[in-house]
C-alpha cells in the first residue's frame, strides 16, 4: 500500500488548514460578489424608479385643470 503523505501526522494539520482556508476563501469571494451585484441591482432599480417618477406627468393636476377649463368653456348647442 502506498502511504499517503498528506495524511501523515505532521502534515495532516497543514492539509486540513489549507482545505479550511480554501473553503473560506471560496465562500468569501462568493459572498463578496453577490453582495456587490445585489447592491448594484438595488441602486439601478432605485434609479429607474426615480426616473419613472420624474418622467410621469402629474396626472391629477392636469385633469383638474382640464376639467376646470371645460367647465368654464361656454358651449353653444
Amino acid at each position: 500500500m502506498i502511504p499517503n503523505a498528506a495524511l501523515e501526522a505532521g502534515v495532516a494539520i497543514y492539509v486540513a488548514l489549507a482545505v479550511a482556508l480554501s473553503v473560506w476563501l471560496a465562500i468569501f469571494i462568493y459572498l463578496w460578489r453577490i453582495d456587490a451585484l445585489a447592491r448594484r441591482l438595488k441602486q439601478s432599480l432605485e434609479q429607474q424608479q426615480q426616473q419613472e417618477d420624474h418622467e410621469r406627468p402629474a396626472v391629477p393636476k392636469a385633469r383638474v385643470t382640464r376639467v376646470q377649463a371645460a367647465e368654464e368653456e361656454t358651449v353653444e348647442r
Partner: peptide, 13 residues
C-alpha cells in the same frame, strides 16, 4: 474575511 482566515489558522496552529 481576514478575521475568519485568522481564526481558522489559529484553530489549527
Amino acid at each position: 474575511g481576514v478575521w475568519m482566515a485568522g481564526v481558522a489558522a489559529a484553530m489549527f496552529l
